[in-house]
Nucleic acid binder design. Structure first.
Lengths: 113, 113
DNA sequence: CAAATAATTAAATAGTTGTTGAACTATTGA
DNA sequence: TCAATAGTTCAACAACTATTTAATTATTTG
């Protein structure tokens, strides 16, 4: 992850709808969610969702996979991990500032396999 | 850190000049840098710097301290740590996705005390 | 093939962001 | 107090972002 990619990723996440969408995709795990399901959960119009998903995809934070007439979007965990690594190393004095590792107890995210 | 504050922090960092400024302040440590020194290192005009520092300060990522006719800006490490915690817990499946802790060897950031 | 469904693309538009140059405020020191 | 220095604020404007409605593409099913 370089500075330029970091800025793009940060910009993609720096908007309410996109951050919410990304969080839902993270919760959904590797299989992701169909665009329609996402639009319903976020309560936004299909074009609005397309617009925002395009931003997330362009930043490399989500991937699209077509299945019949549905398009499933899923979070790219590696990309997010790279972003966190960049922020920790470059914006937080490295180890001196990194937060304690999450224990997985608080947010109860599902295991991804 | 809540979702709304996270979006504001992400937006503050999601711009080349502001990310560069924040990185310089992180490197500078708790004493920070005077605005003029920052403007010189970033090679931008004083008004441009003021504009961007205002964004970082509004997001709570930097603090200002006046000393004579200089104004020193410094990174708020706690705020950055909170943001990283939020992203790890909410956008990365918690422990399942958190990157390995930085060792401090790679980026050679100075210890902050 | 025609109708229905899922989603994207296009066009218009309101709002926000970033940059520039000029004006202003505050502090220091002769 | 006057000049110099350090920064901020203001106003204008170009560029970008987000939202909406309508049109379009692609896939399934009768």
């Amino acid at each position: 992850m370089n500075r330029s990619r970091a800025v793009k990723s940060l910009a993609a996440l720096a908007q309410d709808t996109r951050l919410d969408a990304f969080r839902l995709l993270v919760q959904a795990g590797p299989d992701g969610l169909a665009a329609g399901e996402l639009a319903a959960r976020l309560d936004i119009s299909p074009p609005a969702l397309s617009f925002h998903l395009r931003g997330l995809a362009h930043a490399g934070l989500v991937q699209a996979r077509q299945d019949g007439r549905f398009i499933y979007y899923s979070a790219d965990f590696d990309a997010m991990q790279s972003l966190l690594g960049f922020l920790t190393e470059n914006c937080c004095s490295g180890a001196a500032c990194a937060p304690a590792r999450a224990t997985g107890r608080k947010s109860n995210a599902r295991r991804t396999s």
